[in-house]
């Protein structure tokens, strides 16, 4: 199982698409590692600079319809090779969400007011997340501020994460 948790990158916009996460001009790469320098290169988000803002980040928190558009699994891979194995959002596009779990990564969905609360409290600070997957909860910490949040992951998605992804799961079962 992968490591989940660490410093948080806040992407404060809805409908961030996979072209923004990894532009098509890099889809000519045939290794995941080669995608590393290009993560979020085309994102339309005022003031965001990938070179500095991605440093040491391990978790992404965003708004609604995260990962819409192209089916490219290069989007989760680009996160993965940059050390980001968890995304948290109000809602996901279907394919991106499935791709995350298929890679043994976590795409956590939370209610809109919970996401709003996290943004209001932590988005302008340096914050980090500690994951307790066994108990379906995580804790966000920033200085003296601490917030515990519970989430739910379906049994199937949890099985994918534990198996290290869909290929391992399916190969044993089918």
């Amino acid at each position: 199982m992968k490591n989940f948790g660490g410093e948080i990158l806040f992407l404060d916009r809805s409908d961030i698409n996979t072209d923004e996460i990894i532009p098509a001009r890099y889809l000519t790469e045939i290794t995941k590692e080669a995608l590393k320098p290009y993560l979020l290169e085309d994102i339309k988000l005022d003031g965001f600079l990938p070179e500095t803002d991605l440093l040491n980040k391990k978790v992404v928190i965003s708004r609604s319809n995260f990962g819409c558009g192209s089916s490219r699994e290069h989007a989760p891979w680009a996160f993965e090779v940059n050390g980001i194995n968890v995304t948290i959002a109000f809602r996901y596009a279907r394919i991106f969400r499935q791709n995350m779990f298929n890679c043994g990564m976590l795409a956590i969905e939370l209610a809109e007011d919970v996401i709003d609360g996290i943004f209001n409290r932590f988005a302008d600070k340096k914050a980090s997340l500690e994951m307790d997957l066994e108990n379906s909860a995580f804790v966000i910490t920033s200085g003296s501020e601490v917030q515990k949040i519970e989430f739910s992951v379906s049994e199937f998605d949890y099985d994918l994460v534990k198996s290290g992804g869909w290929v391992n799961f399916a190969d044993k079962r089918y």
Partner: peptide
Amino acid sequence: DSHTCTHGAFGAFAAGVGTTDLEVGILK
């Protein structure tokens, strides 16, 4: 490919998927 939904025009269920789903589809 996300635009695989095109083929629903024929009354088929056709869905775009990522590379891992594709890999399992090819194998299993």
